[in-house]
Simulated scan of single mutants.
Amino acid sequence: MPILSIITVTYNAERFLERTIRSLLANQPGDEVEYLIIDGHSKDGTLGIVRNYEKHISRWVSEPDRGLYDAMNKGQQLATGDYVWFMNAGDELYDATTISNLLNQIRTNPADVYYSDALFVDDTGQSLGLRSRITPHTLPHHLTWRDMAMGMKVCHQAFIARRSLAPDFWVENLSADIDWEIRCLKAARKVVWLDFILCKYLVGGLSVQRHRQSLADRFKVLATHFGTATALWNHARILARAVRFRFAR
């Protein structure tokens, strides 16, 4: 049985998928790592790329789905590793030592959740800076679920959870990744901050493309976990923080 399941969700991702696959292959993953691709029945050249790299892919499926988080649920259900890590099309492992560093941590410092900072990149692969420095989201080194009261502290691609405690994603909610992280943290007995960067995160995902709905859905998530009154107050604080951060730069 593999230790780590890396899951890539795709839909019409021919422009970016190869970048993700090559970053994985640069790490020379062995039997301890499985790689799954969950495709939403792409109509472009995505499946051609998948077939070109098929010998490096543990399992892939291509079929219609109900969106990103439905596909992520499918990937999680098909995974067999002890840990799940979502690395979607266009995202990359940070460098060629990432997997060996992570597996060493898992062997020597077993935990339920591992997390780190993420390097933001644009669609050309150009670095934009670390998430903790170019956004208002400072990264605590002792993370708990209560740290999520004002939004997502950890980029989803920099958050790895033990599969046995990872819940299903809230399919209809564009901020389901926040909910998933909170639920993982609530269930976790031990959470470990990694002092190396796990990923390069391609900016401009679904929550950016549908920003207004994402904000409304984020409120639903935070109200579910922290209560409606607290969520209202914290959203006012989030707005004030964003304004301060913008004018401080």
Rank of each mutant, 00 (worst) to 15 (best):
T10W: 03
R15D: 13
I21F: 06
S23H: 07
L24D: 04
N27M: 01
Q28D: 10
Q28A: 10
E32N: 14
Y35F: 14
G40M: 07
S42E: 01
S42G: 01
K43V: 14
L47R: 11
I49A: 08
V50S: 11
N52H: 13
S62N: 12
S62Y: 10
E63C: 11
R66Q: 13
G67C: 09
A71N: 08
G75H: 06
Q76G: 05
L78Y: 13
V84F: 00
N88Q: 12
G90I: 01
I99A: 00
L103S: 04
N104D: 03
Q105P: 00
I106R: 10
R107E: 00
T108L: 13
P110K: 05
D112G: 06
D112V: 08
S116D: 04
S116M: 06
D117P: 05
V121M: 13
V121K: 15
R131G: 11
T138Y: 09
T138Q: 13
H142E: 14
L143H: 09
D147C: 07
M148G: 03
A149M: 04
M152R: 13
C155R: 06
Q157H: 07
A158F: 01
R162S: 03
P167Q: 03
W180T: 10
I182Q: 07
R183L: 05
V192S: 05
W193I: 00
L194T: 00
D195V: 04
F196V: 06
K200N: 03
S207I: 03
S207N: 05
Q209M: 07
K220P: 00
V221I: 15
L222E: 00
H225A: 07
G227F: 09
T228Y: 03
A229T: 09
T230A: 10
A231D: 00
H235M: 12
H235R: 10
A240W: 13
R241H: 06
R246N: 11
F247G: 04
F247A: 09
